[in-house]
Design a protein around this nucleic acid. Structure first.
Lengths: 126, 126
DNA sequence: GGTCTAATTGAGATATAATCTCAATAGAGC
DNA sequence: GCTCTATTGAGATTATATCTCAATTAGACC
């Protein structure tokens, strides 16, 4: 399977990088469609998936909301405002050995973990 | 606003308790509809929300999947099989002071956190 | 540059999760 | 039993994401 460089694929990658953090697929689409009105949502979704698989960007599945796409691929934690849904990076060291603290894995083969803090963001509690 | 005891509300609560752990709204609905074919999905969703607000059950929003409803209301962590989507409880002490380790809260008022481990469950890696 | 071929795209249908609308129903207080 | 209004059922709607398939096009080869 020979991968091709397409205008659309480049646009998706550039846009995720430009939007900096935690853009949803729809935000990426809305941003691209302003300059390229013919791009299809399906193309945006397809390329977000492909670029995530390639490791160029990282998909962050969020509890209670749409998936986010992050130009930062390193492991880090997030906070979500329960009022507006905004996602912020959390400034905290990554706990690499957290799964070692599990007392009984019951045959589960762990590959990673996510921590999402809940709270109210400054904008929301006025 | 006087809350009423309805057959449907009782069924939803009982069913979440019977299904023990992590049932999705659809699983609750499918379970009830066998004996009460006239119940509406909307009623199940409405009551799951109401009972969660009352604290009788607890909603667990899961990254990459439907919300789960838990008869156990205490804080604990979960693991999700990235192949089949199954959710399991994790046997690990709850880290009550985790949000104290955040270096810069940037005005965020934290109310809690969720940890979801990723991995492959025993059934899936055969 | 022209041709070939399969990867990719766009448009729209489909799937899934959840909520909303509104007329009909039925708890609960009297 | 009567009344009031919370609640329900049916179906429409919204949001998120994927799938289908014919048309397009990137890249290889000449």
């Amino acid at each position: 399977m020979n991968m091709r460089n397409t205008v659309q694929r480049s646009l998706v990658l550039e846009t995720v990088r430009e939007l900096k953090c935690h853009a949803t697929a729809d935000e990426v689409y809305q941003s691209i469609v302003k300059r390229h009105p013919d791009i299809s949502r399906a193309t945006v979704y397809r390329n977000l998936n492909l670029l995530s698989d390639l490791g160029d960007i990282r998909r962050r599945e969020m509890p209670g909301g749409a998936d986010r796409y992050d130009h930062q691929c390193h492991d880090h934690y997030h906070a979500r405002c329960v009022q507006c849904g905004r996602i912020l990076d959390v400034d905290m060291e990554f706990i690499a050995d957290l799964d070692q603290r599990i007392k009984d894995a019951r045959g589960f083969a762990f590959t990673g973990h996510d921590i999402v803090f809940r709270g109210i963001c400054p904008e929301c509690h006025q």
